[in-house]
């Protein structure tokens, strides 16, 4: 049984947002409601300011707090692959999972549009979905939170379950450079131009993701929460593995 995981090399990532765009196209996301995003932030004050960025998909944690708090078992850990998914037919939109997620990667999109004009009014859906984009993909699996997000429920990155779950059994890595496997590679990994993302089986001893984590001291975001993410970051010191989280008082900012 695979335990799919991702490795993101922060020294290689250029912050181009191709992953964000690919994810949005693949999963018919509303503008600004990005399951996968690259967060930009700065540290320090002039003249010692650094611009940094952090790619942030759902961590598909081994011990996900979002799953623990869900009162209807709508969000669950898939035993075959280790995906954290949402059953939209069971979600009640209480947003407790959003509150409980330390990574801020869950989305309730019934609220005010992040990007104006509100594209939901341009492409309105008549099937209870948030919108009806003209370029939507064919995949639709509400029981796994795949497809166009319905009203009143929370959504999140699925690690492109609809692609990854179709991969041949036993493969250690899903690499876009291997022609017979490229269709199973998550969208964000497949389009990464500088090849900063790697996707593979964390339980497979021969997988490249395991070697990268071991050889380059892969770290997990907010590991102190105990959620045990299945996304690892590599950083040789040139970029921060984790952004500075210390809030700055507005008066001092």
């Amino acid at each position: 049984m695979a335990k799919w995981g991702m490795v993101i090399d922060l020294d290689t990532c250029t912050g181009c947002q191709a992953c964000t765009t690919a994810c949005a196209m693949e999963n018919s996301r509303l503008p600004g409601e990005n399951w996968q995003d690259v967060l930009f932030y700065h540290e320090g004050k002039y003249p010692n300011v650094q611009l940094k960025w952090l790619p942030r998909p759902c961590m598909h944690c081994e011990n996900p707090s979002c799953v623990s708090v869900c009162p209807t078992r709508a969000t669950y850990k898939d035993p075959e692959g280790g995906f954290v998914l949402i059953d939209w037919n069971r979600c009640i939109g209480c947003k407790y999972c959003q509150v409980a997620c330390p990574y801020g990667v869950r989305f309730y999109t019934d609220e005010k549009a992040v990007v104006q004009p509100d594209i939901r009014t341009v492409f309105p859906s008549e099937e209870g979905r948030q919108w009806d984009p003209p370029w939507k993909g064919p995949q639709d699996d509400p029981r796994r939170g795949i497809g166009i997000q319905p009203h009143g429920v929370v959504s999140k990155c699925t690690f492109c379950y609809h692609k990854v779950s179709q991969a041949p059994t036993g493969v250690p890595d899903l690499d876009e450079d291997i022609p017979e496997l490229k269709e199973y590679v998550p969208a964000c990994v497949r389009v990464c131009a500088p090849k900063a993302r790697f996707f593979g089986d964390l339980d497979h001893p021969e997988s490249r993701v395991n070697k990268l984590i071991a050889d380059h001291r892969g770290t997990r975001l907010k590991d102190e929460t105990g959620n045990k993410p299945q996304v690892y970051y590599l950083s040789g010191g040139a970029s921060a593995a984790v952004p500075s989280l210390r809030a700055v008082h507005q008066d001092k900012a």
Binding site: P71, T72, R73, C91, I92, C94, Y108, G152, V153, V154
Partner: peptide, 26 residues
């Protein structure tokens, strides 16, 4: 406030989501 209030009324009590404080609260 809930996205699906009616669904909540019958799903929460019968979900047996023992790890969720909200389940016990309901």
């Amino acid at each position: 406030e809930l996205g699906y209030p009616l669904r909540a009324m019958f799903l929460i009590p019968f979900s047996f989501a023992f790890s969720s404080p909200l389940y016990w609260k309901v």
